[in-house]
């Protein structure tokens, strides 16, 4: 795998090899090779599901943690009836609307903050304070301002997104090499041309990083928003399943959210690579 959370050092693996009998060593060697291969993800999931299944069957009360087979059985009719996809669709639209609004405002304000010292001095202290207010903290006031309709959901996602995009954009804009900007000026660029043709492309890798963080935040923010102030979406599905104490349906919703987040990030990175690849080279 190219990207894992912890970078494993081979030294530890070799130390392991020295003790134990010959057949255990061989088994350990096999396992190590398998996990370094291209099927590591599959092995990871299969093992996790097996352990989960075993625990929920023999150790833990299956009502508390329903085994994968039960989650799967629950999911099939929920998919067949369109309940899952309907909720996913509703939440996805909210996430995307808020995400793009937040990103747009974050990019514009970030460029202004990165370029104009006055704007930076005026806004920086306020943003430093505001970034501790999570979307969840803003739910009550959002409901009062916008009601429980779509607008309050857009606002909450927007709120979760824009600070990430803003901070990363401003950092990227400040980091644009002085030499590059001066070279562009000597070549005849000026004013808005500098911003659009030099600053924005130079800061794009940072902006994209901010947008990926924001995308993850949107998915974390949509759930509480829909739990407290909605009658549809994934958060609402979680909320109603919780009220009816249907742990199997809760697990279906949790797995759906995880997979949705993973797919969104994957698609986002794919689009970036296909359309903005040349800007990602440093």
């Amino acid at each position: 795998m190219s990207k894992t959370i912890v970078e494993w050092r081979p030294v530890a693996a070799e130390a392991e090899q020295s003790d134990g009998g010959p057949w255990t060593a061989r088994l350990a060697g096999l396992a190590r090779d398998a996990l370094r291969g291209p099927f590591a993800i599959v092995i990871s999931f299969v093992l996790a599901l097996a352990v989960w299944q075993a625990l929920s069957t023999w150790v833990i009360n299956p009502y508390m943690i329903p085994p994968p087979t039960v989650v799967f059985e629950t999911a099939i009719p929920m998919f067949a009836s369109g309940e899952i996809l309907g909720s996913v669709g509703i939440s996805l639209v909210r996430v995307l609307v808020g995400f793009f609004m937040g990103s747009a405002v974050g990019i514009v304000l970030g460029i202004l903050m990165g370029r104009l010292e006055m704007v930076n001095r005026l806004l920086d202290p306020i943003i430093e304070l505001m970034r501790y207010l999570s979307p969840t903290a803003m739910i009550p006031i959002a409901v009062i301002w916008f009601g429980i309709g779509e607008t309050s959901k857009y606002f909450l996602i927007f709120w979760g997104c824009f600070v990430f995009v803003l901070i990363n954009t401003a950092a990227g804009v400040v980091r644009v090499p002085v030499g590059r900007e001066r070279a562009a000026r000597c070549l005849g660029a000026s004013g808005l041309g500098i911003v659009l043709k030099v600053v924005l492309p130079s800061a794009l890798p940072d902006i994209i990083t901010g947008m990926r963080l924001a995308m993850a935040t949107s998915l974390m923010a949509i759930v509480p928003a829909e739990m407290l102030a909605a009658d549809s979406g994934l958060g609402y599905l979680l909320q109603t399943s919780g009220m009816l104490a249907q742990t199997n349906r809760i697990f279906v919703a949790l797995v759906t959210i995880s997979v949705l987040g993973f797919i969104l990030d994957f698609v986002f990175r794919l689009i970036v690579r296909k359309t903005l690849g040349r800007y990602m080279m440093v």
């Binding site: 030499g179 590059r180 070279a183 030099v198 794009l204 040349r278 800007y279 080279m281």
Partner: peptide, 12 residues
């Protein structure tokens, strides 16, 4: 004209 050509050029 700059010493750090990597920074002065447009990498994209």
């Amino acid at each position: 004209f700059f010493q750090d050509a990597g920074a002065a050029l447009f990498p994209w």
